[in-house]
Amino acid sequence: MYTQALNSSDGDDRGVEDVVRANQFQARIDADERIEPNDWMPAAYRKTLTRQISQHAHSEIVGMLPEGNWITRAPSLRRKAALLAKVQDECGHGLYLYAAAETLGTSREELVDGMLSGKAKYSSIFNYPTLTWADIGTIGWLVDGAAIMNQIPLCRCSYGPYARAMIRVCKEESFHQRQGFEIMVTLCRGTAEQKAMAQNALDRWWWPVLMMFGPPDQVSRHSDTSTKWKIKRFSNDELRQKFIDATVPQAEFLGLTIPDPGMKQNENGNWEHSPIDWDEFKQVLAGNGPCNRDRLAARRKAHEEGAWVREAAMAYAEKRKSRQLAQAAE
């Protein structure tokens, strides 16, 4: 489950409708009060959150695709049941998040259509392919690990419905990371070929995972507003650093090599990484990643092929309602 770089806010609140109310609003935020759906809020706060929460929801839904790819080919029934449960969780997370986004006044249908039309973004990480079973282990271990780093602070986000959704999500997320790490441990204790497969997956996923935390702090223009509104509690670089420091000993345990020969530990004990290829990140966000087209095509196909089910359910509900009304009138 996954959020990334979704923390850029829509400008500042200089042009805000009502200065007095804006000040009262900021005072509530500063006092660590939670904002609830019917409370007054600046238009930019609403817009920023609608975008962030819905992009987060889209990421969950699109995130089902790379992992769903391996459900039928999981190496054992145990692995298959776990992966199926994990993919169901991602769907559930998407739905909690859509519900939270809707409380800001945009309908589910509009949000979903924004994703299907390609207008709304989702996490760049899901535009990479899952080539081997080791990718499933790596996604659980690293992608979900990175998502947890991002999401734990969001449990204290100023917007009540988002914070509550995040609490549920974080409770469920730990299983995802542990099942992924277990797959990695098994592969790394297996044959030389299995270990090589694990190393290959780490080599391909490492850099895209670091990009999940979003652009470096110097270029992340809008972070200030999100921080002021307590939507964001840590900067992109802070979270990335925490993630790397937590992951290095895990990779050591597995006997795997992080594909960054320049990485070194500084005097504070933090691991410093080599420069990240931000052009790749921009390309993937712009729609030119290895799987962007596949992912959108798969979502559109599922949406279109499910249309008759939605229509039939609505028609049946209408029929029953009118029958009940007729009976009541008799």
């Binding site: 169901q88 739905l95 519900a99 589910r108 359910a313 609505m314």
Partner: peptide, 18 residues
């Protein structure tokens, strides 16, 4: 939380799953 469903039967089933 909340969810979308066409009628109460589907809403209950979806609530169970979600």
């Amino acid at each position: 939380g909340s969810l979308h469903a066409a009628d109460s039967t589907l809403a209950l089933q979806a609530a169970r799953d979600i």
